[in-house]
Amino acid sequence: MSLIDVENLTLQFKTDEGLITAVDNVSFSLAPGEVMGLVGESGSGKSVTAKSLMKLNPGNAVYAPESRITLHLDSGPVDVLALQRPRDMEVVRGGAISMIFQEPMASFAPAMTIGSQMVEQLLIHTDMSKKQARELSIEMLDRVGISDASTRFGQYAFEMSGGMRQRAMIAMALSTKPKLLIADEPTTALDVTIQAQVIDLMKDLVDEFGMGIIFITHDLGVVAQTADKVAVMYLGKMIEQGPVREVIRNPYHPYTQGLIDALPQLDDLDKPLMPVPGDIPSPLERPEGCVFHTRCSKIVGDVCKTIVPGWSDTGEDHRTACHLCDQGQSA
């Protein structure tokens, strides 16, 4: 039984320059306790996809009618996109789904103590009393490795370092016991040593609480260290998905291969760095056919420029959307 099912999610933004397609026909599902890495360059639509799960995109977002997001809770399935009133949305936002943002400084209110922000959300989403909420919050702060939690509880965000703020953010996101945690680049703003601590912490918490995690990042190393499965996005399209070992060891799509080749690796310092040629096109000028054909080094023929590739099986649970697969060629 899956935790969340996303089917044919298509999302466009109304702007002065016209309709911009941010997410194009994306489908995936996540089981409880599973960690999915969502990888892509900036502008690939990974954050927008994740925010759609809570319908958190701005007012100019238009969801296509065939899009469907179903969240399976103990009380029965919830059709997220059908929720209209903010009151109904509370079940999902901060209740069943919590989110950790990239910039821990910007996501805490500067004029409220960390503690009062933690208590506030617990009072909204649970039937706890203020005292219980306070006790749980302190316990969670302690749980994520913040020493002297009861003092920290009364402090403001500016009094903490980046790593500590990110820990507090995680404590806050987990205190409502969400079914799904969306982590949007949670370690990008942190130093490597702190990043390693936060990754470890998140792994422990998955084991303990058993929630599903969607881990958004552009760092394939972080994905390899945390995720069970990976989905690669490019210009709003999902182009490859599968188990983490499969995708990282046998990447099939030329873009995924390009991302891995571009990564500087420590075991071979002589290996030249291979950039993916060209730049990601503007979403206003989405290429016809396969969205990646403008930068692809393995174009099969005109078919890439005219026809959108469908999914092909390229291994166990491993799917790739590329015309190379139709040709039966190995990339």
């Binding site: 500590m164 490597v192 040593t193 390693a196 972080v222 260290q225 891995i260 420590l266």
Partner: peptide, 21 residues
């Protein structure tokens, strides 16, 4: 060095952790 996330999914948790900040 050991805090750099390795690209090998089977090479998890080997990092020599630095405590604190």
């Amino acid at each position: 060095f050991s805090a750099i996330p390795s690209l090998d999914p089977d090479d998890r948790g080997k990092a020599q952790k630095l405590e604190g900040e």
